[in-house]
Design a protein around this nucleic acid. Structure first.
Lengths: 216, 216
DNA sequence: AGCTGAAGTTAGATGCTCTAACTGTTGTGA
DNA sequence: TCACAACAGTTAGAGCATCTAACTTCAGCT
């Protein structure tokens, strides 16, 4: 989950210790988030749990925001890895949707950290948008049809316009359209399910999701 | 926006004044939310803006949470009114989707208050779920087909099961299914758009949304 | 006119983020 | 080997938040 320890091998002992503490802080942060949400995340409380007093954590994170940014990065990384693994195992769109749903349900607050209400001032750094692009690429591959598909709807035509965003992607407009539909339908079911808006209805949201993405 | 003043007519002056102040508090609250999000909402700051000091507001709202609950109620009310008005004007599903999208875009934080990341401890009171049911009823009417439609997918069958949630609704399983698809697809596009995840892609999310709900 | 209760006040308990100044400790280069 | 620079952690405190408690003032009702 915390992904900075991969660099443990190299570096001097100082940096190794540093990375270790950063990881432990994040572990406690995830615990807090899982039980009470992001808003309840408190550097102070984490410090206390780790047996040190308040401001010590500022050696490791510039502030609450930087910690949250690090958590968001880890969450994206985790999702991207999950998606990639499913793709390499040769999944269908329905299977991929189920995998992502499982990932979200296994830790709702981690999902909400990425796709929930955005923090007003926050702007994702480049390395995070890069991870999000990784996910998109896998999506396009899973949704890919024949490479010379022609546009078949007004939105396809818009996507096919030269100079646009979709023009730079290695996929035909209908494929991009399918990927976007997949993504938005998935987010639709998931965001409502995780916010509890589907709970009183008593059916299995997974069934609805499966049919939503099946006819792409 | 603030809906308690409808009862202004009756009551003694004390209660009238009370309702007036509550409304003014909510007006300031919406302003704060619109500029900095819910997390930045501060009773203290509102009190200062209104020219009174801190704890005075606790005469009008038991605490931050009760204020937020009142705001959520107003947000739901506003959405329900918008949806109802569109329906009475005889809109199609595509038109309704556009209307709701406009409503959300006109005040993103109001939308996010309802459908964004939920507050961990929060459970909506009954009068709020009642408003949400109002919305559902309109949705069912807009999505309604012939009244004796037969189930045509596994999920339709699940919805048609006796004793289930959908069984109590005045609509056939396929109609309920359409309404759910409409709702989840709408939330999918909107939540991604409002969280800014669609911005770097440069296309008009309204176009995507229109096609998402057109083929129901 | 006088009583009752609500509105608003200040003081303060508690918790948070974050800065500043200080004290140890540890890794490292001379 | 040992001095020193860099870093880990400490306490103190500013500033802001929610919320409680006790007090004062004022308005409406009988």
């Amino acid at each position: 989950m915390a992904t900075e320890s991969v660099t443990d091998a190299g570096r001097n002992p100082r940096e190794r210790y540093r990375a270790q503490v950063r990881d432990e802080v994040k572990r406690h942060a995830w615990e807090q988030i899982a039980t009470a949400g992001v808003t309840a995340l408190s550097l102070n409380a984490i410090a206390k749990e780790m047996g040190m007093s308040g401001p010590a954590l500022y050696r490791y994170f510039a502030g609450r925001d930087e910690l949250i940014t690090a958590l968001i990065r880890d969450a994206y990384r985790s999702l991207a890895d999950t998606v990639r693994a499913a793709h390499q195992a040769g999944t269908t769109v329905v299977g991929l949707a189920a995998v992502i749903r499982e990932w979200a349900l296994s830790d709702p607050h981690r999902y909400l950290l990425i796709y929930g209400t955005p923090v007003p001032g926050y702007h994702a750094p480049d390395d995070i948008t890069a991870i999000s692009d990784e996910i998109l690429v896998v999506l396009l591959e899973v949704c890919g049809g024949s490479p010379d598909e022609q546009p078949r709807s007004p939105f396809d035509v818009v996507l096919g316009l030269n100079g646009g965003w979709a023009g730079a992607l290695p996929a035909s407009p209908p494929t991009v359209h399918r990927a976007l539909s997949f993504w938005t339908r998935l987010q639709g079911v998931l965001s409502l399910e995780l916010a509890g808006h589907l709970t009183p209805m008593g059916f299995d949201p997974g069934l609805l999701l499966a049919e939503e993405v099946a006819d792409l």
